[in-house]
Each structure stands twice: as C-alpha cells, then as structure tokens.
Design a protein around this nucleic acid. Structure first.
Lengths: 142, 142
DNA sequence: TAATAAAAGGATAAATACATCTTTTTATCT
DNA sequence: AGATAAAAAGATGTATTTATCCTTTTATTA
C-alpha cells in the first residue's frame, strides 16, 4: 500500500526522532533501521531536498531532523519520497467526464484521501509517545 | 495507491456489470474500458480463476459476471488480482516485536485496514446505482 | 594545510510490474 | 466432421522500482 521507499523513509525519520538534536551518519541509520545502506543514502538525500531532514557534510557530519518531531507528519515523509497521487481527472480520458470523476474513480480517490488524511494527522511525536509494548525500530530488553 | 492491474480489473468488472447476464469478449471489454487488449486477457484470466467472472470458451464465448453485482465488492476484485498485504509482523524482524506491531507499523497497517474496509463495503451495485453525472466508463451524450 | 570522514552524485545491476505477441486448446455452428 | 471464434497458455519485451558500487565534493580536525 505504501512503497518500500516510503517505509524506509519513515523508519529513518523515526530513528532520527529517537535521538533529537543529534546527527547520525547514513550508515548508522541504515544499521538501526535495517535498510540497505546505499539505498538509504538516496532516500535521505530526497528527504533532505524536501527539508524533512538536514544534512551536514564532512567529518562528524550526518543527518538530523529539520523540524521538531511534532511538526513532522507521516504524510510529510511519504509525500517527499513517493508522493500520493490523487485521481484528478478521468483515467480513461473520457471527454465528458473530464475532471468530474465517475463513481468508480470517485470511490477509489476517496480511499486515497482517507489514507492521506490519516497520515496528515499522524505526527512523529504521536508515533513515539503513545505507550505500548514495542518501541519503534528497537529490540526491547527483557 | 492501487496498482494499474487493479484499476484494469475494476474497469472490466464494472463494464460487465453494465450489461448483466451477457457475455463479452476480452477484446470488446478492452475497447470499452480502454485497457491494452492482451494485458486485459491476463487480468480476466485471474479474475476467472478467483471466480469473480466466468469464462466461456469457443464461438460466442466470452466473459460474464460470476455473481450478481451486489455480491461483488471492490475488495473482491482488487484482492483477486493484487491482494492487499497487511503488516502481520515486524518488517524489521525484531524478535521482541514479533507479531506485536510497534506504533509506526500499527499506524501504517491501520491505514491499510481502513482502505480495505472501504473497498469491502463498496459493491459494484453501489458504484453503478448512485445517480451522478458521469456513468462509469461511458462517454455521456449531450 | 593535509588527512579524514562524511554526504552527494553518477553509473550500473537486479527484481518486479506492465505489456505484447504467438501458439494451442476448446466449444459452437454449419 | 470441418471451419471458426473465442479463451488459455507460453514466450518475450519494456518500464519502473529497488538496490549496489564507485567516484567526487565538502567540511572538520589535527
């Protein structure tokens, strides 16, 4: 439902949010999130371009959050790496439908809107703060 | 959000439902739904294997609905060609998480459940019967 | 200012999804 | 029974997504 790339991006940001203020190298994040290292670099690059994370080059550089975790939503992250595409006009290009969707495509588009809304209202803080048994990305000690 | 293949499958079934009881050749459905002909054949094959549609070989054969349109949901169709995958256990394979999802993956999985629920409660009849301006797949006459 | 550690960029490869083409099988009608 | 029209099956091709590797640039620190 969401792409592998989006899943990786979510993991990376959540990972950074667990140590706010600190910088982490791509390699370190890759290990913690179990994402292929070179691929994660590309993903982080995209996140940096969209100003979800900041990057600092050179010795002791790395990646960090660009905003406080309660300002970053899951939507922000997903939308940066793999934007959710809405159905704006008839996929069959029927002239008479144009921008007025038929019920089939309306329904499909509704589902897209629903998901988008859920992601827009989910901040990174919400993911991290709710008390539950398992901490995102972390193996829990007995 | 849904695959191209799912979109094609939805179109094909809606198309068949517009002429209930009748059989249509794959080629005819392909034209009406603006789906690449040989590809739609494969999609229809899958739909037939999952008993969403029935196929009749030979002269005057073709495809038809296997059930009445109010028994077929969008979920049935999508699930046949491109099953919705739930997150059942930790994608990072963290032992301590196991089948108990962390909040990140719980949230993502919730969105999957939401969409699935919407599709499960959308029958083909609902798509066809609600009065609106544009009729699914059909160019409307002035 | 030289050595180093990190991101950034480019080229390439593998896997998967999407699409087409050709042949074979099956049922129907004359 | 033979001709025909349709699905079914198999082989192949293209595009996109995912993943890897190697080089270049940049900042830091000694």
């Amino acid at each position: 439902m969401i792409s592998q790339t989006s899943e990786y991006a979510l993991r990376a940001v959540i990972c950074l949010a667990q140590h706010p203020g600190e910088l982490h190298t791509a390699t370190k994040i890759a290990k913690l999130t179990k994402v292929p290292d070179p691929y994660l670099s590309k993903v982080l690059l995209i996140l940096a371009k969209h100003e979800v994370v900041i990057s600092k080059k050179g010795l002791h550089g790395g990646y960090g959050l660009a905003h406080s975790p309660d300002k970053i939503t899951l939507w922000t992250i997903i939308n940066a790496v793999d934007p959710i595409k809405h159905i704006k006009s008839c996929p069959l290009k029927l002239e008479s439908h144009g921008t007025h969707l038929c019920r089939l495509h309306k329904r499909v588009n509704d589902s897209i809107n629903m998901i988008e809304e859920l992601f827009k209202t989910s901040t990174v803080t919400m993911i991290l703060d709710q008390p539950t048994k398992s901490i995102p990305l972390c193996e829990s000690k007995k």
